[in-house]
Design a binder for these strands. Structure first.
Lengths: 136, 136
DNA sequence: GAAGTGTACTACGCGTGATAGTACAGAAAG
DNA sequence: CTTTCTGTACTATCACGCGTAGTACACTTC
Protein backbone atom coordinates (compact mmCIF):
# COMPACT_ATOMS: atom_id res chain seq x y z
CA UNK A 1 0.00 0.00 0.00
CA UNK A 2 1.93 3.03 -1.26
CA UNK A 3 1.06 6.01 0.91
CA UNK A 4 -1.13 8.50 -0.92
CA UNK A 5 0.64 11.82 -0.65
CA UNK A 6 -1.54 14.26 1.38
CA UNK A 7 -1.51 16.87 -1.42
CA UNK A 8 -2.10 20.35 -0.09
CA UNK A 9 -4.73 21.86 -2.38
CA UNK A 10 -6.71 25.02 -1.84
CA UNK A 11 -9.79 26.00 -3.80
CA UNK A 12 -10.89 29.61 -3.91
CA UNK A 13 -14.24 30.96 -4.97
CA UNK A 14 -12.53 34.29 -5.64
CA UNK A 15 -10.54 32.54 -8.35
CA UNK A 16 -12.33 32.94 -11.68
CA UNK A 17 -11.16 29.50 -12.82
CA UNK A 18 -13.73 26.69 -12.54
CA UNK A 19 -13.17 24.08 -9.84
CA UNK A 20 -12.15 21.39 -12.32
CA UNK A 21 -9.40 23.63 -13.60
CA UNK A 22 -8.23 24.71 -10.15
CA UNK A 23 -7.85 21.06 -9.16
CA UNK A 24 -6.10 20.15 -12.41
CA UNK A 25 -3.78 23.14 -12.29
CA UNK A 26 -2.89 22.46 -8.67
CA UNK A 27 -1.99 18.84 -9.27
CA UNK A 28 -0.17 19.71 -12.49
CA UNK A 29 1.93 22.22 -10.60
CA UNK A 30 2.64 19.74 -7.81
CA UNK A 31 3.82 17.15 -10.33
CA UNK A 32 5.91 19.61 -12.31
CA UNK A 33 7.64 20.85 -9.17
CA UNK A 34 8.44 17.29 -8.15
CA UNK A 35 6.41 17.82 -5.01
CA UNK A 36 4.62 14.73 -6.28
CA UNK A 37 7.39 12.45 -7.57
CA UNK A 38 6.98 9.98 -10.42
CA UNK A 39 5.14 6.91 -9.21
CA UNK A 40 3.49 8.62 -6.27
CA UNK A 41 -0.10 7.66 -5.66
CA UNK A 42 -2.70 10.41 -5.76
CA UNK A 43 -5.61 10.69 -3.36
CA UNK A 44 -8.65 8.67 -4.40
CA UNK A 45 -11.45 10.31 -6.34
CA UNK A 46 -13.88 10.03 -3.46
CA UNK A 47 -11.27 10.92 -0.86
CA UNK A 48 -10.15 14.12 -2.55
CA UNK A 49 -13.76 15.01 -3.24
CA UNK A 50 -14.53 14.75 0.44
CA UNK A 51 -11.41 16.66 1.41
CA UNK A 52 -12.32 19.54 -0.89
CA UNK A 53 -16.07 19.29 -0.20
CA UNK A 54 -16.67 18.83 -3.89
CA UNK A 55 -18.61 16.35 -5.96
CA UNK A 56 -16.66 13.17 -6.80
CA UNK A 57 -17.56 13.66 -10.46
CA UNK A 58 -15.71 16.97 -10.45
CA UNK A 59 -12.54 15.35 -9.14
CA UNK A 60 -12.92 12.44 -11.55
CA UNK A 61 -13.21 14.89 -14.41
CA UNK A 62 -10.06 16.71 -13.37
CA UNK A 63 -8.20 13.40 -13.03
CA UNK A 64 -9.53 12.28 -16.40
CA UNK A 65 -8.12 15.35 -18.10
CA UNK A 66 -4.77 14.95 -16.36
CA UNK A 67 -4.66 11.35 -17.56
CA UNK A 68 -5.50 12.43 -21.11
CA UNK A 69 -2.64 14.92 -20.96
CA UNK A 70 -0.26 12.25 -19.80
CA UNK A 71 0.41 13.61 -16.33
CA UNK A 72 -0.97 10.60 -14.48
CA UNK A 73 -1.66 6.93 -15.12
CA UNK A 74 -4.78 5.23 -13.85
CA UNK A 75 -4.93 1.59 -12.84
CA UNK A 76 -8.37 0.06 -12.42
CA UNK A 77 -9.12 -0.80 -8.83
CA UNK A 78 -5.71 0.40 -7.68
CA UNK A 79 -5.61 4.14 -7.97
CA UNK A 80 -3.95 6.99 -9.83
CA UNK A 81 -0.19 7.46 -10.05
CA UNK A 82 2.13 10.17 -11.29
CA UNK A 83 3.29 9.19 -14.77
CA UNK A 84 6.77 9.40 -16.20
CA UNK A 85 7.36 12.63 -18.13
CA UNK A 86 6.61 12.46 -21.83
CA UNK A 87 5.91 14.92 -24.59
CA UNK A 88 2.58 14.35 -26.34
CA UNK A 89 2.21 17.54 -28.38
CA UNK A 90 3.68 18.49 -31.74
CA UNK A 91 6.09 21.40 -31.94
CA UNK A 92 3.53 23.43 -33.84
CA UNK A 93 0.87 22.79 -31.22
CA UNK A 94 3.23 23.61 -28.39
CA UNK A 95 4.22 26.86 -30.05
CA UNK A 96 0.60 27.76 -30.74
CA UNK A 97 -0.41 27.15 -27.14
CA UNK A 98 2.49 29.19 -25.82
CA UNK A 99 1.40 32.06 -28.04
CA UNK A 100 -2.17 31.98 -26.81
CA UNK A 101 -1.07 31.65 -23.19
CA UNK A 102 1.18 34.68 -23.52
CA UNK A 103 -1.48 36.66 -25.34
CA UNK A 104 -4.04 35.88 -22.66
CA UNK A 105 -1.57 36.68 -19.91
CA UNK A 106 -0.71 39.99 -21.55
CA UNK A 107 -4.40 40.91 -21.74
CA UNK A 108 -4.84 40.08 -18.07
CA UNK A 109 -1.87 42.17 -16.98
CA UNK A 110 -1.96 45.11 -19.34
CA UNK A 111 -4.50 47.01 -17.28
CA UNK A 112 -2.82 46.63 -13.91
CA UNK A 113 -0.21 49.31 -14.39
CA UNK A 114 2.82 47.34 -13.26
CA UNK A 115 6.24 48.01 -14.79
CA UNK A 116 7.61 45.31 -17.08
CA UNK A 117 10.46 44.45 -14.73
CA UNK A 118 8.11 43.74 -11.84
CA UNK A 119 5.90 41.44 -13.90
CA UNK A 120 8.90 39.57 -15.27
CA UNK A 121 10.33 39.06 -11.78
CA UNK A 122 7.05 37.65 -10.53
CA UNK A 123 6.72 35.35 -13.53
CA UNK A 124 10.25 34.08 -13.06
CA UNK A 125 9.63 33.36 -9.40
CA UNK A 126 6.46 31.44 -10.22
CA UNK A 127 7.88 29.45 -13.11
CA UNK A 128 11.27 28.57 -11.71
CA UNK A 129 9.99 25.70 -9.52
CA UNK A 130 7.89 24.17 -12.28
CA UNK A 131 10.02 24.45 -15.42
CA UNK A 132 13.10 22.47 -16.32
CA UNK A 133 12.35 19.94 -13.64
CA UNK A 134 10.71 17.12 -15.55
CA UNK A 135 13.45 16.92 -18.17
CA UNK A 136 16.13 16.06 -15.62
CA UNK B 1 -15.57 63.68 -38.66
CA UNK B 2 -12.56 62.20 -36.90
CA UNK B 3 -11.31 59.26 -38.92
CA UNK B 4 -12.12 55.97 -37.24
CA UNK B 5 -8.88 54.08 -37.07
CA UNK B 6 -9.14 50.93 -39.24
CA UNK B 7 -8.14 48.66 -36.32
CA UNK B 8 -6.62 45.43 -37.53
CA UNK B 9 -8.36 42.71 -35.53
CA UNK B 10 -8.29 39.00 -36.15
CA UNK B 11 -10.63 36.51 -34.53
CA UNK B 12 -9.67 32.85 -34.37
CA UNK B 13 -11.94 29.93 -33.68
CA UNK B 14 -8.83 27.99 -32.64
CA UNK B 15 -8.42 30.47 -29.80
CA UNK B 16 -10.17 29.10 -26.71
CA UNK B 17 -11.15 32.59 -25.61
CA UNK B 18 -14.74 33.64 -26.34
CA UNK B 19 -15.30 36.21 -29.07
CA UNK B 20 -16.17 38.98 -26.65
CA UNK B 21 -12.86 38.51 -24.92
CA UNK B 22 -10.85 38.29 -28.12
CA UNK B 23 -12.30 41.60 -29.24
CA UNK B 24 -11.78 43.22 -25.84
CA UNK B 25 -8.24 41.92 -25.51
CA UNK B 26 -7.34 43.03 -29.01
CA UNK B 27 -8.57 46.57 -28.50
CA UNK B 28 -7.04 46.72 -25.03
CA UNK B 29 -3.69 45.76 -26.50
CA UNK B 30 -4.00 48.31 -29.31
CA UNK B 31 -4.73 51.05 -26.80
CA UNK B 32 -1.95 50.03 -24.42
CA UNK B 33 0.57 49.96 -27.26
CA UNK B 34 -0.48 53.43 -28.36
CA UNK B 35 -1.47 51.98 -31.71
CA UNK B 36 -4.78 53.63 -30.83
CA UNK B 37 -3.82 57.00 -29.29
CA UNK B 38 -5.87 58.80 -26.67
CA UNK B 39 -8.85 60.48 -28.28
CA UNK B 40 -8.93 58.22 -31.31
CA UNK B 41 -12.35 57.13 -32.44
CA UNK B 42 -13.11 53.43 -32.53
CA UNK B 43 -15.08 51.70 -35.25
CA UNK B 44 -18.84 51.77 -34.72
CA UNK B 45 -20.61 48.88 -33.08
CA UNK B 46 -22.39 47.88 -36.25
CA UNK B 47 -19.38 48.57 -38.45
CA UNK B 48 -17.00 46.40 -36.46
CA UNK B 49 -19.65 43.72 -36.17
CA UNK B 50 -19.94 43.60 -39.94
CA UNK B 51 -16.18 43.64 -40.40
CA UNK B 52 -15.75 40.68 -38.07
CA UNK B 53 -18.94 38.93 -39.22
CA UNK B 54 -20.16 38.93 -35.66
CA UNK B 55 -23.38 39.93 -33.98
CA UNK B 56 -23.53 43.66 -33.10
CA UNK B 57 -24.55 42.71 -29.57
CA UNK B 58 -21.26 40.90 -29.15
CA UNK B 59 -19.28 43.98 -30.15
CA UNK B 60 -21.45 46.20 -27.96
CA UNK B 61 -20.80 43.91 -25.04
CA UNK B 62 -17.06 44.05 -25.58
CA UNK B 63 -17.17 47.84 -25.85
CA UNK B 64 -19.33 48.02 -22.75
CA UNK B 65 -16.78 46.10 -20.73
CA UNK B 66 -13.93 48.25 -22.02
CA UNK B 67 -15.87 51.34 -21.02
CA UNK B 68 -16.52 49.91 -17.57
CA UNK B 69 -12.79 49.28 -17.20
CA UNK B 70 -12.03 52.85 -18.18
CA UNK B 71 -10.27 52.13 -21.47
CA UNK B 72 -12.77 53.99 -23.64
CA UNK B 73 -15.37 56.72 -23.31
CA UNK B 74 -18.71 56.54 -25.09
CA UNK B 75 -20.62 59.56 -26.32
CA UNK B 76 -24.24 59.04 -27.28
CA UNK B 77 -24.81 59.49 -30.98
CA UNK B 78 -21.14 60.30 -31.59
CA UNK B 79 -19.17 57.14 -31.07
CA UNK B 80 -16.52 55.59 -28.85
CA UNK B 81 -13.16 57.16 -28.11
CA UNK B 82 -9.96 56.07 -26.43
CA UNK B 83 -9.99 57.44 -22.88
CA UNK B 84 -7.12 59.04 -21.00
CA UNK B 85 -5.22 56.55 -18.83
CA UNK B 86 -6.43 56.20 -15.28
CA UNK B 87 -6.10 53.66 -12.49
CA UNK B 88 -9.39 52.31 -11.17
CA UNK B 89 -8.28 49.34 -9.05
CA UNK B 90 -6.98 49.20 -5.50
CA UNK B 91 -3.45 48.00 -4.85
CA UNK B 92 -4.77 44.85 -3.22
CA UNK B 93 -7.01 44.08 -6.19
CA UNK B 94 -4.20 44.70 -8.66
CA UNK B 95 -1.89 42.42 -6.74
CA UNK B 96 -4.54 39.73 -6.47
CA UNK B 97 -5.24 39.83 -10.20
CA UNK B 98 -1.56 39.68 -11.04
CA UNK B 99 -1.25 36.59 -8.87
CA UNK B 100 -4.12 34.81 -10.55
CA UNK B 101 -2.91 35.79 -14.02
CA UNK B 102 0.55 34.40 -13.28
CA UNK B 103 -0.87 31.24 -11.74
CA UNK B 104 -3.10 30.65 -14.75
CA UNK B 105 -0.25 31.36 -17.14
CA UNK B 106 2.01 28.96 -15.28
CA UNK B 107 -0.62 26.22 -15.55
CA UNK B 108 -0.97 26.83 -19.28
CA UNK B 109 2.77 26.68 -19.89
CA UNK B 110 3.93 24.02 -17.48
CA UNK B 111 3.09 21.16 -19.78
CA UNK B 112 4.72 22.50 -22.92
CA UNK B 113 8.27 21.57 -21.99
CA UNK B 114 9.93 24.88 -22.79
CA UNK B 115 12.94 26.06 -20.81
CA UNK B 116 12.38 28.97 -18.45
CA UNK B 117 14.62 31.31 -20.42
CA UNK B 118 12.65 30.79 -23.62
CA UNK B 119 9.32 31.50 -21.96
CA UNK B 120 10.68 34.60 -20.28
CA UNK B 121 12.06 35.91 -23.56
CA UNK B 122 8.73 35.45 -25.29
CA UNK B 123 6.85 37.10 -22.44
CA UNK B 124 9.23 40.05 -22.50
CA UNK B 125 8.79 40.49 -26.23
CA UNK B 126 5.02 40.40 -25.91
CA UNK B 127 4.78 42.73 -22.93
CA UNK B 128 7.34 45.32 -23.92
CA UNK B 129 5.05 47.13 -26.37
CA UNK B 130 2.11 47.23 -23.97
CA UNK B 131 3.61 48.01 -20.56
CA UNK B 132 5.00 51.32 -19.36
CA UNK B 133 3.43 53.11 -22.29
CA UNK B 134 0.31 54.58 -20.75
CA UNK B 135 2.13 56.13 -17.81
CA UNK B 136 4.27 58.32 -20.04
C1' DG C 1 -17.88 -11.59 -0.12
C1' DA C 2 -16.60 -7.00 1.45
C1' DA C 3 -14.39 -2.81 0.82
C1' DG C 4 -11.72 -0.11 -1.55
C1' DT C 5 -10.31 1.64 -6.19
C1' DG C 6 -11.43 4.05 -11.22
C1' DT C 7 -15.01 4.65 -14.79
C1' DA C 8 -19.42 5.48 -17.28
C1' DC C 9 -23.71 6.84 -17.48
C1' DT C 10 -28.11 9.98 -16.91
C1' DA C 11 -30.34 13.96 -15.16
C1' DC C 12 -31.07 18.59 -13.43
C1' DG C 13 -30.07 23.46 -12.43
C1' DC C 14 -27.40 27.35 -13.46
C1' DG C 15 -24.73 30.55 -15.82
C1' DT C 16 -22.36 32.30 -19.99
C1' DG C 17 -21.59 32.91 -24.89
C1' DA C 18 -23.60 34.12 -29.18
C1' DT C 19 -27.20 35.15 -32.30
C1' DA C 20 -31.44 37.61 -33.63
C1' DG C 21 -34.75 41.13 -33.54
C1' DT C 22 -36.78 45.34 -31.91
C1' DA C 23 -36.74 49.68 -29.88
C1' DC C 24 -35.18 54.09 -28.02
C1' DA C 25 -32.09 58.39 -27.30
C1' DG C 26 -28.59 61.57 -28.83
C1' DA C 27 -25.80 63.91 -32.71
C1' DA C 28 -24.90 65.49 -37.34
C1' DA C 29 -26.05 66.65 -42.08
C1' DG C 30 -29.44 67.38 -45.62
C1' DC D 1 -37.81 68.60 -39.58
C1' DT D 2 -36.26 64.40 -41.66
C1' DT D 3 -32.82 61.27 -42.47
C1' DT D 4 -29.04 58.74 -41.02
C1' DC D 5 -25.64 57.84 -38.36
C1' DT D 6 -24.14 56.84 -33.54
C1' DG D 7 -24.59 54.05 -28.69
C1' DT D 8 -27.78 51.63 -25.58
C1' DA D 9 -31.40 48.55 -23.64
C1' DC D 10 -34.23 45.23 -23.85
C1' DT D 11 -36.27 40.23 -24.84
C1' DA D 12 -35.94 35.71 -26.69
C1' DT D 13 -33.69 31.67 -28.19
C1' DC D 14 -30.14 28.12 -28.65
C1' DA D 15 -25.87 25.84 -27.34
C1' DC D 16 -22.40 24.73 -24.21
C1' DG D 17 -19.82 24.26 -19.88
C1' DC D 18 -19.85 23.80 -14.89
C1' DG D 19 -21.28 21.51 -10.80
C1' DT D 20 -24.11 18.47 -8.22
C1' DA D 21 -26.56 14.14 -7.61
C1' DG D 22 -27.45 9.40 -8.06
C1' DT D 23 -26.67 4.91 -9.91
C1' DA D 24 -24.14 1.33 -11.86
C1' DC D 25 -20.19 -1.49 -13.36
C1' DA D 26 -15.30 -3.42 -13.50
C1' DC D 27 -11.23 -4.19 -11.18
C1' DT D 28 -7.92 -5.17 -6.96
C1' DT D 29 -7.00 -6.44 -2.46
C1' DC D 30 -7.93 -8.66 1.84
Amino acid sequence: MSKTTPLMLQLSSADPRPIVRQIGDGIRRAIASRELPVGAQLPSVRGLAQQLTVNPNTVAKAYSELAAEGWIDSRQGLGLFVAAPRQMLSDAERSRRLGIAIDTFAADVVGLGYPLSHVIDQVKAALKPVLNKRTA
